[in-house]
């Protein structure tokens, strides 16, 4: 309380304390240094060495799977079927890549997934941005209970209702199609999107809209031209998270899509799963395909990750 009522005094008091701490440390450090110098230095360096060792261990842990798959993708396919340890390609080749790009429907899978998830992310964003704005700004009965209700619905794991999804798709004649999956993915991204973007709208001052109304702008125009651009960090973060979520979805896609003979109608997750689990296909093919998928995604993620910090208001959602 006192800090708030007397900001200047408080600030100067803190400064005084800081100065006191500094001088006290300087004074006490001088005589202590001579006697405790060696053991202090050893202790300090030991700590630092342990920290470096831990960092190295964590880095190995973090990059080993990526490194292993990368080197495997350049390995001649037979070289992987071995019981001796091999961490470098014996005779590097691009054979696995030419096989994946030429002999499989890999590019179809990638295209299917990109269109499917791109579509569901876009539709999901349009819908949730509208809902989020209404839930953040408009005064209406049942606003709070709607928000709680949405969270409650989110607690229902969609996987438990697989048969119900099947019923919906059947009655809409969308079984086995990417459009059907797009519908479910879209809906799946709405609740998180609405909550997250709503949280961001909450932080924007409402004087912005009041000023726009005074200038004669309509509700929709104010929303579209003023509020939406301001909310772009949270929209970007939401888009990234829905995109990653949809891209990684496997359970429903595996159930809904029936692969045709060329396997050209499935998503990348289902396709890679079949590559990894078909014992007649060498693992090197899978390795090359996963490098082709992973590298662009890592680049997108690294480019957009700064939005994740500013645009995530709920803050605690994993991709």
């Amino acid at each position: 309380m006192s800090e708030r009522s007397l900001p200047e005094n408080a600030a100067s008091a803190t400064q005084n304390i800081n100065a006191a701490i500094r001088s006290r440390r300087a004074v006490s450090a001088v005589p202590a240094r001579k006697t405790a110098d060696i053991s202090y230095k050893v202790k300090r360096n030991l700590g630092l060495t342990l920290e470096y060792l831990f960092l190295i261990a964590m880095t190995v842990f973090a990059i080993f799977p990526l490194y292993y798959v990368l080197q495997a993708s350049f390995n001649a396919t037979q070289q992987l079927i071995t019981t001796t340890l091999q961490l470098f390609p014996q005779s590097p080749t691009l054979g696995d890549y030419t096989y994946i790009l030429g002999q499989t429907s890999f590019l179809h899978w990638l295209l299917n997934t990109t269109m499917l998830v791109g579509g569901s992310t876009l539709f999901g964003l349009i819908i949730s941005v509208l809902g989020a704005y209404a839930l953040s700004r408009f005064k209406f009965k049942g606003r709070l209970s709607t928000l709680t209700f949405l969270l409650t619905l989110q607690a229902f794991p969609g996987l438990l209702a697989i048969t119900a999804y099947y019923q919906i798709l059947q009655s809409l004649h969308l079984t086995g199609t990417l459009e059907g999956l797009m519908l479910i993915y879209t809906a799946g991204s709405i609740i998180f999107g609405a909550w997250n973007i709503k949280g961001y709208f909450d932080t924007l001052p409402k004087e912005l809209e009041e000023a726009a109304y005074v200038d004669g702008a309509s509700t929709f125009r104010t929303f579209w031209q003023i509020m939406l651009p301001l909310a772009s960090p949270s929209i970007a973060a939401t888009a990234l998270i829905s995109f990653i979520g949809g891209f990684n979805e496997f359970a429903l896609a595996n159930l809904v899509l029936t692969p045709n003979a060329a396997q050209s109608n499935i998503t990348i997750t289902v396709g890679l799963y079949s590559l990894a689990n078909d014992h007649s296909t060498p693992w090197g093919y899978f390795a090359a395909a996963s490098v082709l998928v992973t590298v662009p995604l890592v680049i997108i993620f690294l480019l957009l990750q700064r939005y994740l910090q500013s645009g995530l208001t709920i803050g605690s959602v994993k991709g």
Binding site: F138, T186, I191
Partner: peptide, 23 residues
């Protein structure tokens, strides 16, 4: 208000509420 909220509710009713009710 209804216009802003309608799409959200439509999708949620179809893909969130219906499956729960059906289950």
């Amino acid at each position: 208000i209804a216009l802003f909220l309608f799409p959200t509710f439509l999708f949620i009713a179809l893909v969130n509420i219906f499956p729960i009710a059906y289950t």
